[in-house]
Simulated scan of single mutants.
Amino acid sequence: MIPPIANNFVAGESSEGALEYAADLNDRGISAILNLLGEHYHERSPAFEDTEEYCYLTAEIDDRNLDASISVKPSQVGLDVGTDVFAENVELIVDHAIDHDVFVWVDMEDHTTTDATLDAVVENADRDGADVGVAIQANLKRTGDDLQRLARSDATVRLVKGAYDEPASVAHADKSRVNEAYEEHLDYLFSEFEHVSVGSHDPQMISLARDLHDECGTPYEIQMLMGVRDDAQVDLAEDGVRVVQYVPYGGKWAQYFYRRVMERKENLLFAARAILS
């Protein structure tokens, strides 16, 4: 059973619980991205089982008429088994998503997975009827080049700062430089893409996104994690901003929960407030 504090960050252990939570979010004017927790599978069987779950989710989202999408991790659907397994499973998920008109996000993991992830995203995003996006991390030095590649495709980008502890050879180590890179990349997205997904809880970045939208008119949305700045999410939605909440669920909740709480001081404060409330 998930303890009460973790319930603030994880929508239960079952798909039914996650789907019901998504419906409640919709009632508050907020969209959902459903993510079945799991990663770094080294055998085909668990990777395919999670692939099937995502296919099931696309059908349920459609049947229940939810404002929701799905998000998969590359190592969850076979990348650690082989790039061919990963490609097959992503293609299968996108097949079902096309049938049910559901958006598919692909999360980004550490820098060693970037090329394979982008290859799969670009290939599937350019398929007829597909809606596919990818998380891109501003802390990586290569991100400017990756955004130029994605701008030539039909993929959507969710820009995040990046949560992985990457080596200095490939990533900006200084927090202020990461923020500068995020602002630079956000400006590029608003000028070169048809839609921008701003993956940030940072009020400064959210304010910048609003300003850039006012300047160029590019549609955008703010994506935040379940359990982080929930009140701000509601306020933004009530103010007419499209808000999308990343909603993880499943039996493998413990690793996700402790990672989120420990990776940033801000999340420790959110967790502490949840305990006291």
Rank of each mutant, 00 (worst) to 15 (best):
I98F: 01
F86Q: 03
E109I: 11
D84A: 11
K73Q: 06
I98M: 05
F103H: 09
S71Y: 05
V77C: 02
V72Y: 02
A97Y: 03
P74C: 07
L79W: 11
D80F: 01
D80G: 06
E88S: 07
D115P: 00
T83H: 09
H111A: 11
F86R: 01
V90S: 06
A87R: 06
D107R: 06
L92R: 14
S75L: 11
L118D: 12
V104T: 07
V94T: 09
M108P: 07
S71F: 05
F103Q: 01
A116V: 00
L79H: 12
D99W: 06
G78S: 06
D119V: 13
D101N: 15
T113R: 12
V94D: 05
K73Y: 02
A97T: 01
M108F: 00
D84S: 14
T114Y: 07
V94F: 13
L92G: 01
Q76I: 02
L92D: 07
L118H: 13
F103K: 08
A116W: 05
M108S: 12
D84L: 08
H111P: 05
G78H: 01
G78R: 02
E109C: 06
L118Q: 15
V81E: 03
D119Y: 14
H96W: 15
D115W: 03
A120R: 04
D80L: 02
T114V: 04
D110T: 12
V77K: 04
L118K: 14
D107K: 05
A87I: 07
L118T: 04
I93Y: 04
